[in-house]
Structure formats: C-alpha cells, structure tokens
Design a protein around this nucleic acid. Structure first.
Lengths: 96, 96
DNA sequence: CCGTTTGGTTTATAATATAAACTACTTTAT
DNA sequence: ATAAAGTAGTTTATATTATAAACCAAACGG
C-alpha cells in the first residue's frame, strides 16, 4: 500500500519543478533560456530561481554576455538529491 | 525534449493528490479512513474534499453509521480522467 | 537624443494551504 | 440525570505561495 511521503514543497511547484527538470539534464542554463522553455514571466522566474538558490538547490552565476547582464543557473548536488527524492516520493502517489 | 504541460492545480496539491490516489484504487472510502491514511487534520481534509467535489472529481455521500454521521467518498469518471491526465503531464517533468 | 528592447528585480495582489475554533451530536463515567 | 470526553465533521481566520504588474538600468536603433 502506498505511503504518502511528504513532497518537498520547494519542488512541488509547477514552475520550480520545470526549472529543476531542465537543470538536471543540462550542464547549465541561462535565465532567458529557462524563461522560454518554461513560458514563465521574467518576474515569476526570478522569484522562483531565488527560492531554489536560497535552498541551495541551484547556483546562479551573474556575468555579462557582451554588455548585457547574464544569469546562468546550475543545479547543485543538493538539488539533484532533492529532485531525486521528490520523484521517488511522488511515485508513491501516482503509482509507479 | 520534455514539454511542460500545465499541471492541473486541483491535483497538484499534496493532500488532494493523496486523496485521489487512494480513491482511484478503491470503490469508495470514508472520511475517517482518508483522514488516517493521509494524516490530514479533519478541517484540512474537509476543505480539500469540498474542492474535489466542486470540481466534479469526487462524489461525497452523507449518511449515518449507526448514529454517527458518515461521509463516503467516491472518485468520478471525470476524476479518473483528470488524475490520469495529471500523471501523464507530470511524467514530462520527472522524466518517465 | 528619444523611444524601444533586453535582462532582469521588487512589490503588490490573488490564490492556496493549513490550523484553530466551532458545531452537533454520542458515549462514558459519576 | 448530568457532566466530561470523544467522534465526525464544518467554518473561519491566518500564514504561505504563486503570479502578475510595475519598475529599473543599461543597450540598441533611428
């Protein structure tokens, strides 16, 4: 019988989950790329990246591409572990 | 490449998802049974059942067990479809 | 220059989840 | 018979979250 392990609230959010889903499969991703892939507004994306960053799930590196600001995101080891734990827990709900 | 289909907000909630997860695998379930299985407070459970009910995802039948009130819940066809669609969408995020 | 676009951040508002308080009984103990 | 405690919920208030709207600074285009 399925036991319902608690779902990390930081990951149980459509946008943050999408962000993590992307970041787990690439070396790193730029703000604009994430924005396009997730269809998020810049504001929403900014806020959610902050949360993931504060939790230590991702790392954001601020630099410049030519003269424009560039925010690059990378998942951390902690983030990978959290994502994997979340997926595992989730499967207890959706039945494998 | 994973496309991020929108996750039905009604199902993308830990408690409501747990409720639906139970109801999809049984003929029907009583309020108290759901409360125990999900570890929810009665208040929270009541509110979330209402939401699922208003969405037509479940049906709640009020009767009496002896002299005590009894609320029995049953998933509907709409609910089953919504749950299946949710699971399918979710898999686009967590990679199969 | 002046308006527009790019790449964001901050802040305000709407939506959600959760807990606490309450209702309406029933059962048990005195 | 009555008070205290328990059961099965509902309602309401509050805290948290998500989202959008407004904003900022620099760069580009005419």
């Amino acid at each position: 019988m399925a036991d319902f392990k608690s779902l990390d609230p930081l990951l149980h959010s459509q946008l943050r989950l999408a962000i993590m889903s992307i970041l787990i499969s690439v070396e790193s991703a730029e703000f604009v790329y994430l924005k396009e892939k997730t269809n998020a507004t810049a504001g929403n994306l900014s806020v959610q990246l902050d949360k993931l960053s504060n939790a230590g799930y991702i790392e954001t590196i601020k630099s410049f591409k030519g003269k424009k600001p560039l925010t690059t995101c990378k998942i951390t080891k902690t983030g990978i572990e959290a994502f994997e734990a979340y997926v595992k827990a989730l499967k207890g709900y959706i039945g494998d």
